[in-house]
Design a protein around this nucleic acid. Structure first.
Lengths: 134, 134
DNA sequence: GTAAATGCAAATTGTTTGCTTACTG
DNA sequence: CAGTAAGCAAACAATTTGCATTTAC
């Protein structure tokens, strides 16, 4: 039941990955972030990017977005917010929404027997660009 | 702008895939459904299952659940409802919830410029079983 | 008869892992 | 210096695709 204590090190790679993810407003895939990080550390490896994204999300520093179908995306902003995803170009944008969803937790726990600890809400549609070219 | 008209055929495979998916209350992955369908059509191929699930979801007969991270799941029930997913065993259950989310569509369209056509809401946590063995 | 759909296998894509070397604390 | 993390490449897993054959209409 005890939390595993892990001695972690602050490597240049880890720092830059976190930094760069925080900078971008988009929600990059591992490969996209890899390209960004490569500009600072040319010989960084994709594996390192994956490993650090996993590490950082476990640690709660970033968010792993398992919502979009094809590829996983990552979000440097960890406060509660929701997403809109374009079905055509797959881009993801943030939205804030003061909804009553939080208060439904208890209701759902009672109904389902689950211990609820989070939720994701995703709207889908076509973004400004894609709805024109459609 | 015209809808592409597609001549489709009612193959035994397609029928059974649709039927069996409608029967199960779970939200099977392609591989799981493949095993189920194999009981009726022993030499069906996994590729056919994938192709038909794609076809049927494009046609609106079933739902493709792109919500869970690891593997895609499919849902035979297409009326609006939401999901709870266990983070440990990855099982997905339905919940009904009369929420105000629908009414937020317009608001989001205005704010984001997206043309919204759907949404998914997923709660995550531990199911009855997993929360004990944890 | 024709073209849509199947079965099979190979190809792709995204992600993880094993292992040796490098570097943080 | 101890052991975490990097780099690289190979392995894996899920899904897609190419092609010859079958089958629905």
């Amino acid at each position: 039941m005890e939390t595993k204590i892990r001695k972690s090190r602050n490597t240049r790679q880890r720092q830059i990955i976190l930094e760069e993810l925080a900078k971008v407003k988009t929600h990059p895939t591992a490969a996209e972030l890899y390209e960004i990080v490569r500009k600072k550390i040319p010989n960084v490896s994709l594996g390192t990017v994956y490993r650090n994204l996993e590490f950082l999300s476990e640690r709660g520093n970033i968010l792993k977005l398992d919502i979009a179908g094809k590829q996983r995306r990552y979000d440097g902003c960890i406060s509660t917010h929701y997403h809109v995803r374009c079905k055509k170009c797959d881009k993801v944008a943030d939205i804030s929404l003061d909804s009553e969803i939080q208060s439904d937790f208890k209701k759902i726990e009672d109904k389902t027997g689950f211990k609820i600890d989070g939720h994701t809400l995703e709207f889908t549609g076509l973004c400004r660009n894609c709805k024109q070219n459609k």
